[in-house]
Design a protein around this nucleic acid. Structure first.
Length: 479
RNA sequence: CGGGGCGUAGCGCAGUUCGGUCAGCGCACCGCGUUUGGGACGCGGGGGUCGGCGGUUCAAAUCCGCCCGCCCCGACCA
């Protein structure tokens, strides 16, 4: 419950974030280091995100399944890069039923290996392809430094794993799912993201190509909030995922994987939140509208509550996620602050004056103070509210996009780049060498985030070394 | 894993320097009453092995040792 004010963003952005996650009851610290408990308000938000993604997965031909959380340790030795990438962060089960296990079992840090193993059993012929499976679940990585939602040891996500007959088709799948993520982020979460390819050093362990959507947080740091990988035949070779083609020749499949996690909640908080608290876009908000009834005496209550009930029923009937805050023990003023902190996009106050005038008071979360307030008739509320929710959704995206664009710079030279990444992103020509990338990181702490898919026609000179560069890349400090 | 900070009621803290009414405060919680259009108030209550274990002492939240946990800052990462 809200009792006092949040640390302002400008004072300490990290502190603001931590306090807000706890106070808004999205999540709490678990008794195990690095683990979180996602509380009902946070989980409802996640469910709404899941719904938006799952619908898109189904529309693009995918089906859901569930694979086990425990994976034989030997599986991690089959793909060299994958081992190197994940070994350090594995949690390993050594005992079961009171006895030491003959083969140790890893809690999945991601499921490429076990799914690859299963695919090798299921796939025989080109007729079996493509395999387009997604699973919703959690994974565990022994992270050194954790933060609620942004990096926890265990986190919830979905991981899609697909197998294809051709490289082109697998590549197409990789980009298709990147598009799905971008569409979801932009249209459902109102988070403007940039689609792009990751550099070699930022690539997923075992992937031939990693793509991601990158978003700018309120402190201008970057956050990768969804990622899609093309594996080529790496995992197919390691796990014998083979098929007979139409010419009766044995071939390795081409595989992909793609994932989006509860980290997206962290992104949502840091993109839209302000000093009052969360601001949740209507499309995924657990509550889109909260009605605060206002009355002093029982006689006023008796006049107000029937209207509240009527409006509630109408909005609910119209498919709007609405809640009546009927808590008796706290004042309306407290409720206003409380729901603002929790990020409910639209508040509706109904009091004696409204009953008299046949009106309700609306307050938009995205426009503080007087600017966001309006008084509208009780007639035709569902339509008015629906439209206002759409307006809020659009204006959140607009605001976030404007903020991002205002903090993306195109430095003229390396000195300017070093300045610019202190408080924003730099979009610069880059020769794609690991040396130049490392130098930037060494000098500024900023890393390459993505090589955007949208590229200029021409060529340029690498901002670091001055050599020929074919691609522009975003440099930024990242979470 | 290095550096820093912290652990006393559900939350936030004081008390620890210098052992002895130090088991306390604010918020939250429970009861009653008055309140309610931007974080209400009065009165009355309940609640704590002082992170754990061991040691010193007549006496330990306080001193000593070991351990555990969490947060922050760095190196690595969805």
């Amino acid at each position: 419950m809200a009792d006092d004010k949040l640390t302002p963003q400008s004072e300490n952005f990290s502190e603001w974030y931590n306090q807000l996650v706890l106070k808004s009851e999205l999540a709490d610290y678990a008794p195990v280091r690095g683990c979180m408990v996602v509380r009902p308000y946070g989980w409802t938000l996640w469910e709404n995100m899941q719904a938006g993604l799952d619908r898109r997965f189904k529309e693009t031909g995918h089906v859901n399944a569930a694979f086990p959380t425990l994976i034989p340790m030997s599986f991690f030795e089959k793909e060299k890069d994958h081992v190197e990438g994940f070994s350090p962060e594995l949690a390993v089960v050594t005992h079961g039923g009171g006895n030491e296990l003959e083969e140790k079992l890893a809690f999945r840090p991601t499921s490429e290996t076990i799914i690859g193993y299963m695919y090798s059993k299921w796939i025989q012929s080109w007729r079996d392809l493509p395999v387009l499976i997604n699973q919703w679940g959690s994974v565990l990585r022994w992270e050194l430094r954790t933060r609620l939602f942004l990096r926890t040891a265990e986190f919830y996500w979905q991981e899609g794993h697909t197998a294809h007959a051709t490289s082109d088709e697998a590549m197409e799948e990789t980009y298709k799912m990147l598009d799905v993520y971008a569409d979801f982020a932009i249209n459902d979460c109102a988070i403007p993201v940039i689609k792009g390819r990751k550099s070699e050093t930022e690539r997923f362990a075992g992937a031939q190509m990693t793509t991601g959507i990158e978003a700018m947080m309120g402190d201008t740091k970057a956050l990768q909030s969804g990622t899609s990988h093309y594996f080529g035949q790496n995992f197919a070779k390691a796990f014998d995922i083979d098929f007979l083609n139409k010419e009766n020749e044995l071939e390795h499949c081409y595989t992909t994987s793609w994932g989006l996690s509860t980290r997206m909640i962290g992104a949502l908080i840091m993109v839209h939140g302000d000093d009052q608290g969360l601001i949740i876009p209507p499309k995924i908000a657990p509550f889109q509208v909260v009605i605060v009834p206002i009355f002093r005496k029982d006689e006023e209550r008796e006049k107000v509550m029937p209207i509240v009930d009527k409006v509630f029923a109408e909005l609910k009937e119209a498919g709007i996620r609405v809640k009546v805050d009927d808590r008796d023990q706290v004042s309306p003023g407290f409720k206003f602050n409380d729901w603002e902190m929790r990020g409910v996009p639209l508040r509706m106050d109904i009091g004696p004056k409204d009953v008299e005038k046949g009106s309700v008071a609306l307050a938009r979360r995205d426009l503080p103070g007087r600017d966001g307030k309006s008084f509208v008739s009780q007639d035709g509320l569902p339509a008015v509210v629906t439209e206002m929710l759409e307006t809020i959704q659009a204006s959140l995206l607009e605001k976030a996009t404007a903020f991002r664009d205002a903090n993306i710079h195109e430095p003229k030279d390396y000195d300017e780049l070093k300045e610019v990444v202190k408080k924003g992103w730099a979009l610069s020509w880059w020769c794609e060498s690991a040396e130049c990338e490392a130098k930037v990181k060494e000098d500024t702490k900023a890393t390459t985030r993505v090589i955007p898919l949208d590229q200029p026609e021409d060529e340029g000179k690498c901002i670091v070394c001055g050599e020929k560069a074919e691609k522009k890349v975003y440099f930024a400090k990242a979470y």
